[in-house]
Simulated scan of single mutants.
Amino acid sequence: MLAPPALASPADGATRNGREIYQQFRDGLSDPECGPEVSQRWRKHFAAAPKRLAAADENTLALFGYVVDALHASSLPTEYALIPFVESGYKPDARSPLGPAGLWQMIKRTARDHEVPIRKGYDGRLSPVDSTRAAVRYLKTLHGMFAGDWRLAAMAYNAGEYRILGALKRSGQVARDARPAELPGLSGITHAYVRKLHALACVLEQAEEREQWLQALDRPVPRLRAVTVATDVDRVEEWASSHGQDPARLRRLNPVFADGRIDHGDAPVSLLALVPAEGPDTAPAAGTGAASAAGSD
């Protein structure tokens, strides 16, 4: 087995080893146990997830690392980093015919309730920065509301907190010692949500046993950060040119700017970009006015 890489702090450069991201994910799991009770159905369903995560020609691992970092900064379990896998396959441009959109597959009402900007020309659900910031903030609230039980919080993310609070009350349970699988009056989809996340965590956890997969992770992966775009910059290509980044890649990371146009509206606009080789605190090029911003609150 490959020796684990030395862990670096988030400010240690433009890239990090993919196995460092994986290790941070594993270290942050609230429920790392993978016994026979884990759903075999959902294990099979997500069997391709390790391959997708390790694919060198996609942004999945970099986005996964961005979400894991945001959860770590908020002291939340990394099971929550699997929600975009379940919801969108970690595709920031994912859209459902039923209305949800983005990494976290938010409906418009949920997005607006959690301060994701949506206006003509700008759908913040398609911004990994806006949607991840809102999702992590919401998960932080749910995590506290349900006594730090990630299973209850995940169910609440899927069904709404009031349904879970009602189910706890009807069953005579309290969050601190609840039995989520026994909560009454909830849909099969909500109960399956926890089984999906746990099975997916176990698929990734036990992928460590596959040497070839670990070797595929053992490569430099770009660090991502949110930057605030100055109001005088109205094209992704313009920002990319000033910062030495690939505009096509930035558009893939930020499908909210799919046509390359940056609509500033009435509030600051954030772009998910690669950390520059000089380090995350490098000053922006003259005339762009871009400033570093946190990836999550």
Rank of each mutant, 00 (worst) to 15 (best):
L214H: 01
R195W: 02
Y90Q: 01
I118P: 12
A153V: 08
A201L: 02
L183Y: 00
A258D: 14
A94T: 02
P222L: 09
S127I: 13
S127Q: 15
V256C: 04
S88E: 00
V233L: 13
A47Y: 03
H114K: 11
H191L: 04
Y66M: 05
L214T: 05
V203H: 01
I189C: 00
L76H: 12
G89A: 08
K169N: 05
V236H: 05
L2T: 06
S241W: 07
E237N: 12
A6I: 11
A192M: 02
Y22G: 03
R112N: 00
H264E: 11
G124Q: 09
A293C: 01
G89Q: 07
R249K: 14
G99Q: 10
L29G: 10
L63Q: 04
T282R: 14
D218W: 03
C34L: 04
A153I: 11
L126G: 11
A291I: 15
A154T: 10
L139Q: 13
E79K: 11
R223D: 01
A273P: 12
T132W: 05
V194F: 06
A291R: 13
Q23M: 12
D259E: 15
F146L: 07
L168R: 06
L76T: 04
H143W: 14
F46V: 00
S127D: 13
R137E: 10
E211G: 04
H143Y: 14
E208R: 15
R26K: 10
T110C: 06
S39C: 13
D123I: 09
A293N: 02
V38S: 05
D232K: 06
E33F: 09
W104T: 03
F25G: 00
G160L: 08
V203W: 01
P184V: 06
S292K: 08
A277S: 07
I189A: 03
Q206Y: 11
G13A: 07
T288A: 06
I83D: 03
A56D: 05
